[in-house]
Design a binder for these strands. Structure first.
Length: 575
DNA sequence: GCCGTTTTCGGCCCGACTGTTTTCAGTCG
């Protein structure tokens, strides 16, 4: 069972307990444990086998017993009991905005509703308004909620949300002549997917800001509009929220709306220990207000250094901040090159020269052209002959261009048996070798893991491309045992890629953090197939930051001569 | 259900908003 699956089950139990009306702290405990499990750098089954379940924050005696049963048998009697008491469909009602556990239970018990459709029907028939505690307005609100659930797009990728949010921020800044406008929420923390776009503005007249917001040309429909907040549906189908407040509250509000919720809970606890209460309006000590116009003021009052948004997931960042052990996170400006880029020699659309020019424009010192190998079957991969021709072209462009050095690499396919798609004689002539899996992604854990390990044993392989093979929202990761891959990478010195393509982000943040702990060499690459996608490398940087990576862990922060040293001095074959 | 430099029992994060209420419950972030 994967960590995510275990976390899902724990959350399901939490939902069921809430609907049952158990004390809220019980379900809170399950949610806390779920978040811990999800953030684990190792597979929970390993921790279980080591008998260390109790080490997981939020897992006590009772949960240890349940997790033990779950991991041993794949089943959980307690969950089955709960599901006998509450139909699964009722949990689904929690997805309707405005319906929480109490209302879900009410709808189920009084109307027999066990699906969103049931609720929709009852609402249209006017049956909801007759229920205790609900009225006509609630009925309308729930009906609207049902509608949005049935038509809601799922979470969108960071790569899709980012430019849209940026456009909105710029439009607001222009309209208000005001620089204190920011995208907040999961977008600012750089999460791989985004629910809706949250924005914050601080200005002298908040009501003016919300009025400007709902009048933006991208707005299709105004959902709600008040003096301090507004919610709209954009023409592209996304929802966007704006909060507007006075300048003196900007720092505390920025902190508050950036989240995560878990991080904020932990901060408030810390405040409480100091006899303070913390909200988006700042701190309160008795009847005295402590305002925080800047975000760092919030942390300073708690005796902490400012914590970068990417770390704010309550995964140990607060303790690290208290101990002065926050990482010095890698930044985009630390990158000196991109080591995984395609051109029109294989399945890219831009020429070597255009890609080189674009890379120079980005301020890079070097760029590796890594087109596919022929065995991929698709993508117009290069054989030995075409590789020679491409080398000549790259040599010509290196002659032509100052200020950037183009390396010839390859993204060589790791075949189903773990052998590489080019013989060693060819690989050793190349400056750099990225080895990746595209085929046979559904092999069982043992087969696909061995395949990857075997490739890493080759002294010619410098980087493993997109190690898990996942496509966010489209395809789950392969069955590969990444913990073993990380161990092998630490042994062989092979770099693992942080693929920055927004639909990959692979390795993900949790694995990056594990890699950093193990001292594994990482490399942030765009995997661009056109000049315009080179800039997507920023999503990889953000993901690496979420994995606590410093520039010292990232191969392509090295200057060219150091990179060349690394490439020629790679640790020898491990037998 | 978890957890402990006030506690092994009694706490557990905070405030706004909304709609239904006449003092509050539920939801949300």
């Amino acid at each position: 069972m994967t960590n995510r699956e275990v976390a899902e089950l724990l959350r399901l139990i939490a939902d069921l307990l809430e609907i049952k009306g158990e004390v809220v702290y019980k379900s809170l405990a399950y949610r806390r444990a779920a978040a811990s499990v999800e953030a684990l750098p190792q597979d929970i089954s390993e921790i279980w086998q080591a008998g260390s379940l109790r080490q997981i924050p939020g897992v006590g005696a009772a949960l240890e017993k349940k997790l033990d049963e779950l991991l041993a048998t794949g089943q959980l009697g307690y969950l089955r009991e709960l599901q006998e008491q509450v139909p699964v469909g009722v949990v689904g009602l929690l997805g309707i905005p405005g319906v929480g556990p109490k209302t879900a239970r009410l709808l189920w018990e009084q109307l027999g509703a066990v699906s969103v459709d049931d609720v929709a029907r009852a609402a249209r028939e006017g049956k909801l308004r007759a229920l205790p505690g609900l009225g006509e307005r609630s009925e309308q609100a729930i009906l609207a909620g049902v509608h949005s659930v049935l038509h809601r797009s799922t979470r969108i990728s960071l790569g899709t949300a980012w430019p849209i949010a940026n456009g909105l921020v710029l439009a607001m800044r222009q309209a208000l002549n005001e620089s204190s406008v920011e995208a907040v929420g999961s977008l600012r923390r750089g999460r791989e997917t985004i629910g809706d776009i949250d924005m914050l503005v601080a200005c002298g007249n908040p009501a003016e800001a919300t009025a400007v917001f709902v009048a933006l040309s991208d707005v299709a429909q105004v959902v709600s509009h008040g003096p301090t907040r507004a919610t709209v549906m954009l023409k592209n189908g996304l929802q966007a929220d704006l909060r507007a407040l006075k300048v003196e509250h900007y720092g505390s509000a920025l902190q508050y709306f950036t989240g995560s919720k878990e991080h904020n809970v932990a901060l408030r606890k810390l405040a409480q220990q100091r006899g303070l209460s913390l909200s988006k309006y700042g701190f309160r000590e008795g009847d005295r207000d402590i305002l925080c116009p800047q975000e760092q003021d919030v942390y300073a009052v708690l005796g902490l250094p400012w914590i970068p948004p990417e770390l704010r997931e309550d995964r140990g960042e607060i303790t690290a901040a208290q101990q002065g052990l926050l990482p010095d996170l890698v930044e985009s400006s630390d990158l000196r090159g991109d080591l995984h880029v395609h051109t029109d020699w294989s399945d890219g659309v831009s020429s070597v020269q255009d890609v080189a020019l674009a890379a120079r424009q980005l301020g890079y010192e070097y760029l590796a052209i890594t087109d596919h190998s022929s065995g991929l079957g698709v993508g117009n991969g290069l054989d030995a002959e075409r590789l020679r021709m491409q080398r000549a072209e790259i040599d010509r462009i290196n002659e032509l261009l100052d200020g950037i050095t183009i390396l010839q690499g390859v993204e060589v396919e790791i075949r189903a048996d773990g052998s590489l798609d080019h013989p060693d004689e060819i690989l050793q002539q190349l400056d750099l070798v990225v080895a990746s899996l595209h085929l046979g992604m559904r092999q069982d854990t043992e087969t696909i893991t061995r395949r990857l390990l075997k490739a890493m044993e080759s002294p010619h392989v410098d980087i493993i491309g997109h190690p898990s093979g996942r496509l966010i929202g489209q395809r789950d990761a392969s069955n590969v045992d990444l913990e073993r891959v990380l161990d092998m990478a630490a042994q062989t010195g092979t770099a693992l890629e942080v693929n920055a393509s927004p639909n990959r982000l692979d390795l993900d943040d949790v694995r990056i953090r594990r890699a950093v702990e193990l001292g594994v060499q990482l490399c942030i690459n765009s995997d661009a197939h056109s000049t315009s996608m080179l800039g997507a490398i920023g999503f990889g940087v953000v993901t690496a930051r979420r994995g606590w990576a410093e520039s010292s862990s990232i191969l392509n922060t090295l200057p060219l001569h150091k990179l060349r040293e690394w490439l020629s001095g790679r640790s020898p074959l491990v037998s």
